[in-house]
Write a protein that binds this DNA or RNA. Structure first.
Lengths: 240, 240
DNA sequence: AAAAACAAACACGCAAGTCTGTTCTTACCC
DNA sequence: GGGTAAGAACAGACTTGCGTGTTTGTTTTT
């Protein structure tokens, strides 16, 4: 027999629906991209009606902003947890770089690449994003400071080299879209780790256990084609 | 009196119109972004009719691909010219980094950020872009090799460090969208130049004359609002 | 009973692709 | 070499599809 849907408080209903929508939006953003991000799609993914969506979020843009904030919050939390995992001993720099890479490459920067262009051309949207992103950058800086403290490294040096690490990772992920060449990136990241260890004056360390990623793994699916490809969709007779 | 429009050959007409459309597309892409890139807009910018556009390019996507190829060709040419400018003496690494930064930040990577998400989610589009981008990457690698030769540096080392430079620059430009902080990037780039000079075993060099940028300077205008911002467009009574 | 939460139908705008008609070049012919 | 037919190049109207925001109606909780 099927349980009748348990009675929930209004707040429970509200928060669950909103949470489903936020997560669905981020996943759709990563898997389909911003241009293919439609409110009917999001509602379907979240398992709610479009009416529920429009009830909780007045516009698609509102939903977007809140979803991005949610994602960055998750990332901040993971980062904090990582730092907590290395209180007294020195954090192996390789583990840090690997963690940052996984965090960015598995979802965070994929999603960022989706909304950055919109932020560039849509001032109100950008303004709403700025405080959210500022908070994330502050969390990064705080992490670098904590790490430099436990490792006994000049804070200035840690800031610039670890922020540069983030930029390097961003650039690598961006390039990866049109240059899928794992060896290239592995070599570059390995080289970078060696440089970092030199700057920060560390010896080699063991690999570290990392907190789990925020989103489930992404498989490149490409479901129904939209818009931009209509002319390419003509099927050729024959051929398998 | 007004000159009657000079008689042009079909090829001249064709090439001029196509060139206007390619350039207009790239500029629109940079100034308005891919989501706001409409064929009526492009035609207007190019000073041709929409009919002319659709005559020369069967689809918006065709026009996009050709425009990107054109842009990357321009960049490749500039890079080659830069290398030619430093045949015998050692290229000052600062000049190289500055050139790459200007090239990427003034248009190339701005535009790239626009179409990367589309390439990620649109396989046919991506496949058409791959050979174009491969050629660009090959031109980069060739430049690194040439530079390493004149500078007497191990080629391997030059490849990885200069490709890393490109990735670093990409990441910085991406971050710049939501962290407009010139001092931050200047410091990072300066730090990076010092590191590079160390690896490549150079002394300080004078600033170099750089080839001109591909596109005219961009001023953030944000003309008519589209789509995503409709709800934000409500004007408040009063206020200046 | 009232309000919050949800559901679904409606209307508008817009851009891409298609199509039909017009102007400009070229090639051919006498 | 001038006139003309054919085709390239251009111009603009039309059609369709789709996604957003809106609105009106229903269920659930208070």
């Amino acid at each position: 027999m099927i349980d009748a849907p348990r009675r929930r408080t209004q707040e429970e209903r509200r928060e669950e629906t909103r949470a489903r929508l936020l997560r669905a939006t981020v996943e759709a953003l990563r898997d389909q991209g911003l241009t293919r991000l439609t409110t009917p799609d999001i509602a379907r993914r979240a398992g709610v009606s479009r009416g529920a969506l429009t009830y909780h979020f007045a516009s698609r843009e509102d939903l977007l902003v809140d979803s991005i904030a949610w994602l960055l919050d998750q990332a901040t939390g993971g980062l904090r947890k990582l730092c907590d995992a290395y209180p007294a001993p020195t954090m192996p720099i390789e583990a840090l770089v690997d963690y940052l890479w996984d965090m960015m490459a598995s979802g965070l920067f994929q999603v960022t690449m989706e909304f950055l262009p919109e932020a560039r051309h849509n001032a109100p949207f950008r303004e709403r994003l700025l405080p959210v992103v500022r908070e994330f950058h502050a969390a990064l800086d705080a992490s670098w400071t904590r790490l430099s403290a436990v490792a006994g490294i000049p804070q200035e040096e840690a800031q610039v080299s670890l922020n540069a690490t983030m930029c390097l990772i961003r650039g690598m992920i961006a390039q990866n879209v049109l240059r899928n060449d794992p060896a290239y990136y592995e070599a570059m990241l390995g080289w970078w780790k060696r440089q970092l260890r030199g700057w920060l004056g560390q010896d080699a360390g063991a690999a570290a256990p990392l907190p789990p990623p925020i989103l489930p793994a992404f498989v490149h699916a490409e479901p129904p084609r939209k818009r931009l490809v209509r002319d390419r969709a003509r099927r050729q007779a024959g051929g398998g």
